[in-house]
Design a binder for these strands. Sequence first.
DNA 1: GATCTCCTCCCCCGTGCGGGGGAGGCGGGC
DNA 2: GCCCGCCTCCCCCGCACGGGGGAGGAGATC
Lengths: 220, 220
Amino acid sequence: MPVTVLLVDDEPLVRAGLRAVLEAQPDIEVVGEAADGAAVIPLVRRLRPDVVAMDVRMPLLDGIEATRALLRTVGAPPKILVVTTFENDEYVYGALRAGADGFLLKRARPAEIVHAVRLVAEGESLLFPASVRRLAAEYGDDGGNRAARAVLERARLTEREGEVLRLMARGLTNAEIAARLVVGTETVKTHVSAVLAKLGARDRTQAVIAAYESGFVAPG
Amino acid sequence: MPVTVLLVDDEPLVRAGLRAVLEAQPDIEVVGEAADGAAVIPLVRRLRPDVVAMDVRMPLLDGIEATRALLRTVGAPPKILVVTTFENDEYVYGALRAGADGFLLKRARPAEIVHAVRLVAEGESLLFPASVRRLAAEYGDDGGNRAARAVLERARLTEREGEVLRLMARGLTNAEIAARLVVGTETVKTHVSAVLAKLGARDRTQAVIAAYESGFVAPG
DNA sequence: GATCTCCTCCCCCGTGCGGGGGAGGCGGGC
DNA sequence: GCCCGCCTCCCCCGCACGGGGGAGGAGATC
């Protein structure tokens, strides 16, 4: 059965765009739309979507409050994909802290949007592009350790994948990582691919950026 | 004429190793050795080396003080390559602040060592692997702007190269950077190569790491 | 026992990347 | 005038990278 999606955005144009992009996929179905956060909860109760694609900035009830309300009041809540215009939107942090599963830039390419929806539907987190660095701030001043663990959990990286990401963020090639971990390069490639997928990164460079931006690795 | 090098390290073994590596090159000549920073200044006056490869941790006079003294007292001072065991050596920052032109890990491969010597001899800076992030701290809290400019100057990146590095650090591919800057991909490749060379980075991933570690781009 | 996750390793394949060259135009400085 | 730094674009070439599959073993869970 297809992935069902509810669109929440105050701009009809954006909703139409998302609908067009998503419905072009045989395995994704847009089951409803809402123009404001206040309308979300009853709609979710009725339509039971797998994913809610929700704008952060909306009149009446914004994406953060709507996310919080959804998670608090709905049993078995849908996955929440926060939609935003700006990479460094203050609201995004709030939404992620409120429990959103990922976020999506409005200027992302169709393929990326589809990818993001599928990913969160499968239970993965989408932290890239990572304005999530401030996660670190939440976790006090004991450095990046707890923050790193938090990122690990949010992105659902396995321990091994976390090790690989850390080595990627030190500039090592797959072969060097393989030597360091005493495994085959094919194994490293597998882990790297998993890391890229979970972080929503296109290549190792973006993964390293995400590692820095999320506080998974800290400068210094 | 060859590049002349003066070796300064309290461990004879290290000096011998550097000598062996460097003298294997037809265009590099080791013209002298010293076991402590205190002996450096007269030797430099006498030998006029192009490059001084200097350990940071030495008895009597360490690499930081020796660097400072060299730059203060010698007219047309040599390029100074700081040699260190650890990537995150506190002393390294001091040496770079004191005016050293680059640093070198003792565990670097011979080819890298040779490369570093040639590079600083040519007047380039070698900031990678970048424990230079704390440059940012020197420049107050006005964010990364002045720090970025400082890194630009230290690494002698041109304005265009700085732009390219910034886009690399946002995860863009060469083609995307080319589109953004409205130039050909070949042009971008040229800039990228220049950035890699000047930062001493092996690939774009390492360049991005250097950008973060140096404070050239800031998380957030 | 069956199922699941994780780690490990293997295949094929296209391509973006980076190194090696060279070259022309343009501006500023000597 | 000349030279030099910078930006621009071009060639060839090897390889690491990343996507697409598949598969076996260890360990935990049910």
